[in-house]
Design a protein around this nucleic acid. Sequence first.
DNA 1: TAGTGGTCTAGACCACGAA
DNA 2: TCGTGGTCTAGACCACTAG
Lengths: 235, 235
Amino acid sequence: MLNSQYHHLQRYFGDLIQQKVLEAGTKLPSEREIGEQFKLTRITVRQALQNLEAEGLIYRQNRRGWFVTPPPVIYDPANYLSFNLYVTEQGFIPHTEKLLQQIEPANEELAQLMGIETNTPVLFLHRRRYIDQRPVLIEKIYINFKFLPGIEKEELSQSLGQLLKQKYQLEYRDMDLSFKSTSLPAHAANDLGISTGHAGLHIERINYTSDKKVLEVDYEFWRHDAMSIRIALRD
Amino acid sequence: MLNSQYHHLQRYFGDLIQQKVLEAGTKLPSEREIGEQFKLTRITVRQALQNLEAEGLIYRQNRRGWFVTPPPVIYDPANYLSFNLYVTEQGFIPHTEKLLQQIEPANEELAQLMGIETNTPVLFLHRRRYIDQRPVLIEKIYINFKFLPGIEKEELSQSLGQLLKQKYQLEYRDMDLSFKSTSLPAHAANDLGISTGHAGLHIERINYTSDKKVLEVDYEFWRHDAMSIRIALRD
DNA sequence: TAGTGGTCTAGACCACGAA
DNA sequence: TCGTGGTCTAGACCACTAG
């Protein structure tokens, strides 16, 4: 395996990228061109490219080609105030697109999680978030808007953290976090415009009010290469 | 993509696994057999299998075949006492193998992280950990043994958390955690007996003493399908 | 319309694991 | 020794994107 042909090709591009000869966003030559240059079939070339993708060094845009991955953003759910804020602070440009907002009845699983009756109306929010024009995560949020009267009339492509703070004098404090490294489910991959089966990171976040009620349940589906999580635990 | 042939095959096995018709540990038919049965070439079959692997539903053992993945263990680094403990509690059998233990000089990066002089001797520990006979993670630990006199003479395939508690009356409290979803580096994939490029989860944990000195730096390389992280943040 | 990646065929040889 | 997955060849057609 260490002497396979795709491995040589993988190292060749991997080194160029890590030495920053190829900068973030650079487009690689097409699979056919690479194949000609290195006298390899496309399948072998793709094996190398897919491994580089798994490493997070390159990514593809649907039928547009392969590109060098920009550095990951550092995500600290414990210090969570706002996606916009921490992305900006790290020198990137954030953008949020609201795909859907509606009031819907809580299904059984959600109701149990939220400690409410099944079919109680909750506010559902479906958003796509970008870093430097690149879609990196899909968010599905369920809000118990009993605690947040009038929130459904706000502009909900903004930061919820900031909205909670400014309008309701609430801050994220207690939360349960769950992370799972797995491929993106079809709906998320679709929304992100990438192939099903793409590596992803699934985050589930439950935010509590100060008296331990569930305020919000948040499901995030991230591209695996777009971020790195950092948490400081202090007693 | 949703109507591709490998996608049908992927769903076929995916459904069987999720409905538990195929139980954890079951061996799938060989790639050639599946190909014959579904009239597909091996490349197409492998595409489906690799996607199922990315989902975490199946895994391979080097040239032995494909197997149904057991459920993930839940890992709570904040409540970290012992790998052995939480794995056992969840009904699995843990096992730890010490691959290497030696005293070595800290390199520049580590020294800076630990707040010590470069080349200060530190205790290096290299371990492989198993769940139900399956190797799931590689650990590389660097210990500032100034705080833990005599630790190098202990049996270090046991739980460090328990050892610290019993022998030194220390408990893990403050720590910095970092998670990155990425493919396993070659050394870790090798030690786990899986192909380079396999999806993984990289954890870095810095444990502090009660007076904010770095006690231990821990690098963990997990199979991506072996665990799910859960953290409760309380103010 | 030309070029890209996405999917697929029908083979082949090799290295490693199990018996 | 035989069966397995790992790697690779030399093509093909399709769906989508960009210009």
